[in-house]
Design a protein around this nucleic acid. Structure first.
Lengths: 240, 240
DNA sequence: ACCTGAACACCGTTCAAGT
DNA sequence: ACCTGAACACCGTTCAAGT
């Protein structure tokens, strides 16, 4: 939103100064949230490598060094970005049973990591979790507890589910293809290079599974997730 | 091992030249393996940030730019490091049943990632897998296939297990503590800072589980792994 | 064939100076 | 209170020159 201000000093040309069509945009005051938002946009567009303090300054129409008025350093910035991204994850619903609630939240978590692939890697040191992260974790653990999990079982469940989600997103990110067409093209090339005699099972899997029409690695996500949720259901019953 | 060579040119002082106790060590010829080995040692000691081409050169008693005679660039170096680390993972044994073989291999994989935490993150772009990586993947898929998994089920199993292992290692790495004593100390501080009214379940979990004597997050690894292996056993039977 | 030194185009971060 | 400009100590990588 633009605030148009009237010039107070005399001007011969005109009494009212129109909004300046100049090189410098009207300055919106910088704050931590705007800094983090711009940083996320940069990382979404070009990965973590594309996020430098200097480019971030450019994006905010400010010198790079001004950013330091709003974040302590780059690590602080990355922590803030990770927490803002965590805030995008749908919290487990109180009205769903534990399994439905965790399943929906896990899918939402996965969607968020697909949207922001750099986020799998951003929080290198787990100190200083933000409030969105804490709230998310609290609600997930609460969902398990209210679903009948003992404290220990809730800890196991939380660890298993989130490890799987993080690891799946990492594997997905490292794949050099996404659409079925790209996958097929890439797999055909790989298969041609792959000495089938050295790696017979890899060759078989590529030829008879990955190259099948409609194959998409991302479809694996729900299969593994449901497998874990089945296991957690047994654990829940045993822990009662 | 040092190879002592005799000087062929005449020397007035002595017929035999003793190994020179000079400032410059006897130069061992550089090769890609030695470069990658030194890079791994640097990353093990100080994380990926500590690995710069200049420091790597120092470590090898060479100018930084000489490294480029053996690796194309830093990405090539990181790929090489990842593959060498993959080579440390014990391959699944042919004489074990599928579950025992995969369990042992998964534990070995986890051990390797604990030894080289930076490796969870090093292979950002999954192109150009090395031969150790390919061999490992081939043997894992083969173990599933010979254990009675259909091709599709083997693909599901492979994805679920390795996603879990990667994700668990990432979570583990991001924890700011390892020993039970550090954990207890850190958890007590966190608990004191944590507004228990805002995060009741997190507070409960910390107080009644993490702060219990002998708690170690790494113990969660086998619990989640066995849960997944149980699920895979059901999937195997259904896929037959 | 391998190694070196200088150079280029960047980084994150500090600090005194401005408004 | 916030922003700027210059500076510092680094990066990865190139390239011509040496042996």
């Amino acid at each position: 939103m633009y605030v148009v201000r009237f010039a107070t000093r005399d001007r011969s040309e005109s009494e009212m100064t129109p909004p300046r069509k100049s090189t410098s945009e009207p300055r919106v005051r910088l704050n931590k949230e705007r800094v983090i938002g711009a940083a996320i946009a940069l990382a979404d567009a070009g990965g973590l490598d594309a996020l430098t303090m200097r480019r971030l300054g450019d994006e905010l129409n400010v010198e790079a060094m001004s950013v330091y008025n709003h974040v302590a350093n780059k690590e602080d910035l990355l922590n803030g970005m990770a927490d803002m991204v965590f805030g995008e994850i749908k919290l487990p619903s109180h009205s769903d049973d534990w399994r439905t609630a965790i399943r929906k939240r896990s899918i939402s978590f996965h969607d968020v990591l697909v949207r922001h692939p750099w986020a799998t890697t951003a929080r290198d040191s787990g100190t200083n979790p933000g409030t969105a992260t804490l709230r998310n974790h609290d609600r997930v653990i609460g969902t398990f507890r209210n679903g009948g999990f003992s404290i220990a079982a809730a800890a196991h469940a939380f660890s298993a589910v989130d490890s799987y989600i993080y690891g799946f997103a990492m594997q997905e990110k490292s794949l050099p293809f996404t659409t079925p067409e790209e996958t097929a093209a890439m797999a055909a090339i790989l298969l041609a290079q792959l000495p089938a005699s050295d790696y017979p099972y890899l060759a078989e899997l590529t030829a008879d599974h990955v190259l099948k029409p409609g194959y998409r690695y991302s479809d694996e996500f729900l299969i593994g997730l449901d497998l874990i949720l089945d296991g957690l259901d047994s654990m829940r019953i045993e822990s009662q």
